[in-house]
Every structure is written in C-alpha cells, then in structure tokens.
C-alpha cells in the first residue's frame, strides 16, 4: 500500500497521491467555471419578456440536454469527438485534461443551474414587488434582491453537487488522464495487488468527508437562523 501511494518511479509506476492532485486540480478549475456558467443559465431562464424568449429556449434546451446525457458520454464526446473534428483553433489544446474539464463543466453546469433556479424560485414574489416598487429594474431586482438571497439558500445543495463533482473527476480516466483511480488501476494491473484501489478511495474520502461535514454545518446554521428569525 505504501508503494502504491508513493509509486515506484524507477519502474514507471505512477504514484496515486500525485495522480490524485490532478483530480483536485480538475475540481478546482471546474468548480468556479460551473458556478458562473450555471448562474448565467439560471438567470437567463428567469428573465421575463418576449424579447428574451430565444435565450430562455437555449438555456432550457441546454439544461435538458446535459442533464439527460450520462457524464461518461459527455466525456467521450468532448474528449474524443471534439478533437476528432480537428477544428483549427482548438488544435493547440492537445491535453486531454482540458477536454475532461470541459466535459465536467458542461455537464455539471446543467445540474447546478437547476439548483440555482430552485433557489431563485424560493424567494417570495413579494421581495421582487418590493424592489420593483422602489423603481428598481427587473435586472436590478434580480441582481440585488433575488440572487443574493437565492444563493444563500442553495449553498448546502451546491456543496452536495461539489462533493459529487470531486468524485466524478475520476471518470476522466477514460480519456487516458492518469488521475488517482487510473493510477490505482495501473498499479493493480502491474502487481496483482488491488489494495491500490483502497488507497485511491481513501484519498477521495479525505477530501469529501470534510466537505460533507461543512455542508451539515451550514444546514444546521440555516435551521438555527430560521427558528430564531421567525418569519424569515
């Protein structure tokens, strides 16, 4: 197990823990992109008025699509399909890691957009009425009144999605990226010693359990606030 953790560089066997850093990196790059893209999608779906109908349609189609396609397939499509098109501008990006992160962002943004949307819809219409009655525009009401309240409410489910994202970084192994799960597999295949999978599993748990506890903590804090705050 110790060997699988640190690897045996002389024999070209990857260390699981350093491979795991790739998982963490992909997670750290994908997460902010998802947060931004998903919020844009959720907001576009909320904006009223016939002028915005095409935008709403695109946003709705996006979430329907990417929630409907298994993540593994999205990874195959972006990882093999897109480079296969040999689009000129993209040909610089040979690293499969980039396609892997793109796949994670595309897929997770659809889920996270729905989480945001649930948050936005949970803000009572009277809040919008109050903002509009003061002469704020629809956009200003969203920006200053609705979205800040919505985000506060959806932090626990968002974190839940990020625990899941952190685990799903393992799926990008199918593109040949040597991340932790793949490193463990390689080690196991060389040595017929599959304890390497346990090492990889332990590494994931070390990250996800604190995230899970942090989520619990936030839910508990919200619950306390609600009971103290009465109406709100």
């Amino acid at each position: 197990m110790k060997e699988s953790f640190f690897g045996v560089p002389s024999q070209g066997e990857p260390a699981i823990w350093s491979a795991f850093l790739l998982n963490v990196k992909m997670f750290l790059v994908a997460e902010p992109l998802i947060l931004v893209l998903a919020l844009v999608i959720a907001v576009v779906r909320q904006i009223r008025g016939p002028v915005f109908f095409p935008f709403r349609l695109v946003a709705t189609a996006y979430t329907d699509f990417f929630r409907g396609i298994p993540l593994l397939l999205v990874i195959y499509i972006t990882g093999y399909g897109v480079p296969g098109l040999e689009i000129r501008g993209l040909s610089f990006y040979r690293s499969p890691v980039i396609y892997a992160v793109a796949a994670l962002v595309l897929s997770y943004s659809a889920y996270v957009a729905e989480v945001y949307r649930a948050g936005i819809e949970s803000v009572h219409p009277s809040q919008v009425a109050a903002a509009r009655s003061l002469g704020l525009s629809q956009w200003q009401a969203l920006r200053f009144v609705v979205i800040p309240q919505a985000i506060r409410r959806v932090i626990p489910p968002l974190l839940n999605d990020f625990i899941s994202l952190q685990k799903d970084t393992a799926l990008v192994a199918v593109l040949g990226n040597i991340e932790a799960a793949r490193a463990a597999q390689i080690y196991g295949a060389f040595r017929f010693n599959y304890s390497s999978f346990l090492v990889a599993a332990a590494l994931f748990i070390v990250i996800t359990i604190p995230l899970a506890r942090f989520t619990d903590h936030l839910i508990e804090r919200q619950r306390r606030r609600r009971s103290a705050g009465g109406l709100m």
Partner: peptide, 11 residues
C-alpha cells in the same frame, strides 16, 4: 408603496 408584510430585504 408600503406593504402589509413589510417586505424588507432580509439579507
């Protein structure tokens, strides 16, 4: 306009 339920911004 002022509403029955105040509708202050809680955040």
């Amino acid at each position: 306009i002022v509403f029955q339920a105040f509708n202050l911004f809680p955040h």
